[in-house]
Design a protein around this nucleic acid. Structure first.
Lengths: 208, 208
DNA sequence: TACTATACGGAATGCAGATTCCGTTTGCAG
DNA sequence: CTGCAAACGGAATCTGCATTCCGTATAGTA
């Protein structure tokens, strides 16, 4: 045991360093293929098919993601990063209410574009929880909500925990009827109307 | 082939006649067990477990329901009958708007009480469609919607097809977070608020 | 009571899909 | 150019269910 073994920096920012060139290339191929396949067919797309789509052997897929669940989690993490990113943007929006609305619209949109994500939202609370936690989404939702309430446009009885629930619900529609039905955007608007503070409860605007 | 074979009246109103006494008894036991098991564990409860819960062999389950899908459909049919029944009642409600609201609340409630039903709503469009069709739920939704619109309380741009979608969405919440979270009723109310016609669009009430 | 069409139970089967294994190939340090 | 640890591919294995099969038991009838 006199051999000096280099410590591997493992993965950094999603891209894995310290991997042989071909390994890195394959990993990307797998991720890309899985992203598309899961988006199209939902979580019950099969591992061998992911491998095929990535032009790689099953073994290779499993070398990078020891479990299907791990692969799913990795993809979910990426989506949640985008979601958090968007939340941060909307926190800067001129109109807090519109910011919140757009965030919710966005969360519905990405689900309409990704059946796999709908499935995660609908039946993988742990994955969803972990991913959200990792990017601080909860905190962001809280801020989004508080800000919109302060501006007087959002009903004051809403709690931030209900934002993820609303997202799940909207995902459920796409999951059940397919994005093709094209009806989900209307449902989003209905919910948003329901979120608006009742007109009479709105404090008289300070100045303006 | 000279034997005269009696024609079996098969099933009538859910209860199967022309069955040997023990057979009828077992059939009921299976249905009851399945109802409970699927309600508790969702659609991936297993057939052998249904049999066990009904104190019956798997074979017996399969003699009555050739396929798991058939069993699911039978249970779903029963739920949809209740749903239709409730819809009919609410069509008689004094207040059309409250009638619609209560119908929606009811559909959320039965899903909160039955994970299996949530699953059907969320990922068995065919079963749901067939069951709904069988009891004329679509037509009933249409009437419920039109009536509430006529009274001026329901937003006029709602189409009846969106009622089932709303039901799916609400079911999705229970499915994802469990009924235990106890938050779904609030989401229902939010949606209902979103369904209400904007105050200014309401025609002045005739008299009263 | 005897007989037989119906039912029954549950071990055995079939299959789909995740995961493992191992002989072969390849990137790359020296 | 070599040597070998790091990767590869994909057939084989394992597992979890649904579903089938068949010898046995029983309701209903004569």
């Amino acid at each position: 045991m006199t051999t000096v073994t280099e410590v591997k920096p493992a993965a950094k920012n999603g891209v894995a360093h310290g991997l042989r060139a071909d390994a890195r290339r394959n990993r990307e191929a797998v991720i890309a293929a899985a992203k598309k396949l899961f988006a199209d067919e939902g979580l019950d797309a099969q591992m061998p098919d992911v491998a095929k789509a990535a032009k790689v052997g099953v073994g290779t897929v499993y070398r990078h993601f020891p479990t299907k669940e791990d692969l799913i989690a990795a993809l979910a993490a990426e989506r949640f990063e985008r979601l958090a990113e968007r939340a941060r943007e909307e926190l800067e929006a001129d109109d807090p209410w519109q910011g919140l609305c757009d965030f919710i619209r966005y969360s519905a949109q990405i689900q309409a574009d990704d059946r796999g994500l709908c499935d995660v939202m609908g039946s993988r609370p742990e994955v969803m929880g972990a991913s959200a936690e990792a990017v601080g989404l909860d905190e962001l939702c809280d801020q989004l909500v508080k800000r919109a309430q302060r501006s007087g446009d959002l009903r004051t009885d809403l709690e931030w925990e209900e934002i993820p629930m609303i997202a799940c619900a909207l995902g459920g529609i796409t999951k059940a009827h397919g994005p093709g039905a094209g009806r989900w955007p209307r449902l989003v608007e209905i919910v948003l109307d329901g979120l608006r503070a009742p007109a009479d409860s709105k404090l008289p605007k300070p100045i303006k």
